[in-house]
Write a protein that binds this DNA or RNA. Structure first.
Lengths: 408, 408
DNA sequence: GATAATTTGTGCGAACCGTGAACAAATAGT
DNA sequence: ACTATTTGTTCACGGTTCGCACAAATTATC
């Protein structure tokens, strides 16, 4: 059969660039500049993107036609010259973010630019969650929160889950805390919630890392490591501004680096995982408290330490030392700008940081020192923010394409 | 002062794309396809790049004009249809690769496509190397090897060094084995060797990782970890096809992850670094040999083990166990496709791998298993190959730009 | 050995994109 | 009111790929 179109294979490798790629890339530049820096004048956009006024005019008008942004009347800023109109996000374009935790499910709606429009959280008591129940709960939660937000056009959906997530498949491969195994969460949700754009699923710690990197404590860092823990310890790595995924998207399981080969048994089947030394169970046990009391007990432990109780202080020093040992390893491996501590390491930051720093002084290679160790500034909302950022990613990379695919 | 050119800031952000960017990107596609897949017909290039015949014709003619490639007469391949001319690398375009080891200095010339044209190695006896001497030695070695190769046009130079290298500055920040401290090797070499294009300096293990990823055991892997060791233990990480650098290019110091917090003192000042358990000193000591004997002693140890000597076997089992502990950590963190073992872990691969695998079975999170552990296939030439690949990187990204900057 | 089928190179117009200059508009300062 | 300054608008221009029509070169078939 002769090829009717004569040439243009188009099937195997879409790596090449054409004129349209230039337009897409520049639209992405403009919309990303707005998303990450907030509303800007057209003049500012020229400076941020390096495009000429003529070109920015075209990009903005195209984004306006797509309904993504609009221009506000120019405001005089006191300097001479014709004032430039302010380009702002449309009010009815947003992303849906969903968080599946052990003890709660949450959903939120974020506008372009990162502003939260609505948030709802549903507490759960049981730890084992039936998949069908979870899907149904997420569905009603999503519908409610979308109504709260004024039913905006949803550009994409991001889901954060406690467990290993195969990102390319949007599948939860293993989530022991939920009792889930190979759950195709993306597909299941696509049937439950409609008109919510492309659905992407990610690990909660990786999403928190993404959030802190974009809008949190790692905003100015190119290379960042996020570490969070309560019962389990998870993390995420941002390398050169982009999340580290690994082969299947499982990268960042830093709770299971071996720090003490002859130490305690870990739930994962290994021995001496970092998690067994810096997790909340080890901390509470060292402090003479009930290891099963969970996250709330940590707050009482901070109080005890504040009051100067010796066992509490010792427990924190020991835990801080182990924290420092692992952090040293991470710094030597990744050479990051910043390490962001979330979860109980954020609330207990003041009680732990000295022991951590002491350990770093001997264990980090001298030229690699200088990495900042800071607490998370987004706290518990990091997961939802990161899920939203993941959902925005496609729209930012190809604004017109995703908009036209939304309005089928 | 009014702006004479009216607009076009051009100074701060060169992120935007124009028509010329498209051409550059597509030229890069074509040349890279040739570099990594070997000579291809124009028709093949259409398939690899997704460009049309018209476009490929333009790209090839431009690369030909720049002197990078030429077309060979078409050869009939037995199938019907007009035969397509074969696009091949010019014979006189090459990269210079230099390797600065503790006990030797080497230089080599590689043609586009990766073929080695010439190689020379200069042994050294003393371990402390004066910088001036090293520069002079490298200079003569480079001149000699370039003459051997027929004085090709050098498109770029890559230097691999045993030590921490600040890649952006082309500076050796710390190289204890050479006794170097903050040596601006790139600048110094630029004065010594002329007409060798842009000079880039990198860490030897990172370059080996790059080499194995491009042309070695990690060729088909997107995510790869390279591990090499003799006295010191180094490594490099390829994430999503690209080398992990970290903030200053120091990333990948996996010899200094803490595996045994109360273990032996490490030369870096820390305690229980992986290097202290899997380095050659620990191995020889366990086998009852002289820890200071160096790399040659390892070969005799393999012999002892082959002959069934118990202490040798025990030493290898113990070392293999520690090797497995660290590799498990790396897999849990990075979720790689492949782990490539170089240095003495390549020569001793058969004696170590069983103990490593045994450890992985309990320590790696189940969904992360399946990472292949394989020996390096480039062996000792990995560093030079990686250095050449680093040198090629610029030319592949912007062929015409670098060629015109070469012919000043 | 001639013809058909197939594959590929070549040439050219069309479409798309950003540039940059000229001009107009809008503001502050004098 | 006038000038300086900054910015939006318009438009011709150069650069790039695409896709078609045609020619060229090879194999398969009769």
């Amino acid at each position: 059969m002769p090829n009717p179109t004569n040439q243009a294979p188009a099937d195997p490798a879409p790596r090449s660039m054409r004129s349209a790629s230039v337009r897409t890339a520049n639209l992405s530049q403009v919309l990303s500049a707005l998303h990450f820096h907030g509303p800007l004048t057209r003049s500012d956009l020229c400076a941020y993107t390096g495009l000429t006024r003529s070109s920015v005019a075209v990009q903005v008008s195209e984004l306006t036609d797509a309904g993504l942004v609009f221009e506000q009347a120019p405001q005089s800023d006191g300097r001479p010259g014709r004032p430039s109109p302010l380009v702002t996000f449309s009010t009815d374009i947003a992303a849906l973010a969903i968080e599946v935790e052990v003890d709660s499910i949450a959903a939120a709606v974020f506008r372009l630019g990162g502003e939260s429009l609505a948030e709802r959280r549903l507490a759960r008591t049981r730890s084992q969650v039936r998949v069908e129940d979870a899907i149904a709960d997420i569905g009603t939660l999503a519908r409610d929160v979308l109504a709260d937000a004024g039913s905006p056009t949803i550009i994409g959906t991001g889901v954060g889950v406690v467990g290993l997530v195969e990102e390319a498949e949007n599948t939860v491969t293993m989530a022991p805390n939920l009792g889930w195994d190979n759950v195709p969460l993306g597909q299941l949700l696509a049937n439950e919630i409609k008109d919510c754009g492309e659905i992407r699923v990610g690990n909660e710690a990786n999403l928190s890392a993404r959030a802190e990197s974009t809008r949190g404590a790692g905003r100015d860092a190119n290379d960042m490591i996020y570490l969070s823990g309560e019962v389990g310890v998870g993390g995420g790595v941002i390398s050169n501004g982009r999340p580290l995924t690994g082969r299947s998207g499982f990268a960042g399981e830093i709770g299971h680096l071996t720090v003490n080969p002859d130490g305690r048994n870990c739930g994962c089947g290994s021995i001496g995982c970092w998690e067994t030394e810096i997790g909340i169970r080890a901390l509470l046990e060292r402090a003479g408290l009930n290891p099963d009391d969970g996250a709330d007990a940590a707050d009482t432990l901070w109080d005890h330490a504040d009051r100067g109780e010796e066992q509490a202080r010792d427990a924190l020093a020991t835990t801080g030392r182990w924290l420092g040992i692992g952090v040293s390893t991470l710094i030597n491996i990744f050479n990051p700008d910043v390490i962001v501590l979330g979860g109980m390491y954020r609330t207990g930051y003041a009680h732990l940081i000295d022991a951590v720093r002491a350990e770093l002084e001997t264990r980090v290679l001298p030229p690699l020192r200088g990495a900042a160790i800071v607490p998370s500034i987004l706290g518990d909302s990091a997961i939802l923010i990161g899920a939203a950022e993941m959902a925005f990613e496609h729209a930012l990379a190809d604004p017109i394409g995703t908009m036209s695919s939304i309005r089928t």
